[in-house]
Design a binder for these strands. Structure first.
Lengths: 141, 141
DNA sequence: GTAAACTCTATACTTGGTATAGAGTCAAGC
DNA sequence: GCTTGACTCTATACCAAGTATAGAGTTTAC
């Protein structure tokens, strides 16, 4: 299978497949006489696995670790679980950050409506007041 | 005020301040005879405003737009509000993506515990089964 | 006078790709 | 046999939002 077919089957772009090869997520495939990459069904499976992990928002480094561990069927799956646990924690953390942000933005937005001029803009006033509170009082120098 | 002092007062790194100047968020300041940047209190305020916007996770492009609009006190603040609205929408969207992700990860994680070997790993099995369902049946060729 | 601390520019690196240029290869049609 | 279009190759540059470095010049403190 050539790279274009593999791209069609996986839904990944050709460049992305080559990118994963450079990142060593995907083993460098055989080449034809004309130096074209020639893939097996194994490569297809591997790519779909990677795609699935990316859909879970795992980083390439995390995926790399999981793939490496997976290659050794007798080893403990502790590190895979730890990767997922850490990932869950990271997302948890990010969600609560975004929730706090959302609250701030919404209350800021509530302070203004579209018919105002810039100098009266409630959103900008809120931003400014936060700045002023951090800003040292002006000195005459 | 030199760049180091400005960095201290804003809590931004020196590189970040120079980066914002390159991105035209911050006007290029006066220079001393020895070519050092020399900042006014206005620059400090501007940077704190930018920092606040970044804390709201606005992109540099969004901040750029807001700053540009802000410079014209008689214009309508509609575009500022629109920027915030779009930003709120984006975050909303991201939050629900992450929530869905979190659910998937948690149910995946629930399928395994740490005492298993890789070949028995519930997490990996779940990942594999998703892959298999997308993978064409093997042909002998 | 010298050493430490500061600043300058320019450049490379990060992540997860995407987009391009310029060259080579392959299959079909004439 | 030759051209045309589709495909592939490598290498390089680009995106956001910075961070990190090298190598040079400047200022400050002792």
């Amino acid at each position: 299978m050539k790279i274009g077919q593999l791209a069609d089957k996986t839904g990944l772009s050709i460049q992305t497949i080559r990118f994963y090869e450079r990142k060593a997520l995907l083993a460098a495939p055989e080449r034809t006489q004309s130096n074209y990459r020639s893939y097996s069904d194994e490569a297809l499976k591997q790519l779909l696995f990677i795609k699935q992990c990316r859909a879970l928002d795992m980083t390439i480094e995390e995926i790399s670790l999981v793939l490496e561990t997976r290659a050794n069927p007798e080893s403990s799956c502790e590190s895979v679980n730890a990767t997922i646990d850490k990932h869950i924690d990271d997302i948890e953390h990010r969600i609560s950050e975004l929730n706090a942000l959302q609250k701030t933005l919404q209350s800021m937005r509530a302070a203004c409506d579209d018919d105002k001029k810039i100098k009266e803009c409630g959103v900008l006033h809120q931003l400014d007041s936060i700045v002023d509170s951090h800003c040292p009082t002006k000195r005459n120098d």
